[in-house]
């Protein structure tokens, strides 16, 4: 199953955190920093699988004996423009399929926002959660079809675009306040 879904940008600023196991906020943040530290140093040519961050690797060694277990063993990521999408999962997930899953997630966002960019996600993080909720429930993938995901989110209400004046130059206006 999938243990966590994280989205953060090139500076490690979180844009979405979803943990399918209840964790303390502080631990969540530590995990986030550890993963960001791992992911941010990787060249683009590198593969999309991360070694386990120290927080998760602690007792992974003892578990590796059996091929399957409940312990998260796979950290998959994809990097799109300014954002990193990360999935932490156990061995019951297929690594290559997870990469495709991230792709579906991003495509769904793209479909909903039309040329999605980081700003859309910052201002509509509820929608981000909604999209994820259509695809993954309780750590289990429930939908992989792009159309159905988009349809499911749209059924919940209109998806707002980012505020117009937030685009280029918009910052100036707000900075004046």
């Amino acid at each position: 199953m999938i243990n966590a879904v994280l989205v953060f940008n090139n500076n490690g600023q979180p844009r979405l955190t979803k943990f399918y196991t209840q964790l303390d906020t502080a631990v969540q943040q530590r995990l986030l920093t550890e993963i960001f530290a791992l992911v941010s140093t990787r060249p683009n040519s590198a593969c999309n699988f991360l070694p386990l961050p120290p927080l998760l690797a602690n007792n992974a060694a003892s578990k590796s004996a059996s091929s399957q277990s409940d312990a998260p063993s796979l950290v998959t990521y994809r990097h799109y423009a300014t954002l990193y999408f990360i999935l932490i999962s156990t061995s019951t997930e297929s690594p290559l399929a997870l990469l495709d899953l991230i792709q579906v997630f991003v495509e769904a966002l793209d479909r909903l926002f039309e040329n999605v960019c980081e700003l859309d996600l910052i201002f509509n993080f509820e929608t981000l959660h909604a999209v994820l909720g259509e695809m993954i429930v309780g750590g289990v993938v429930v939908e992989t079809g792009l159309e159905k995901v988009v349809e499911g989110v749209r059924a919940q209400g209109r998806v707002a675009k980012r505020p117009v004046n937030e685009s280029r130059g918009g910052a100036g206006i707000w900075a004046g306040r």
């Binding site: 423009a81 300014t82 040329n115 999605v116 960019c117 980081e118």
Partner: peptide
Amino acid sequence: DGMQANLRRRE
């Protein structure tokens, strides 16, 4: 500018 970069494009 970076924030508006289209996510579909890989950096």
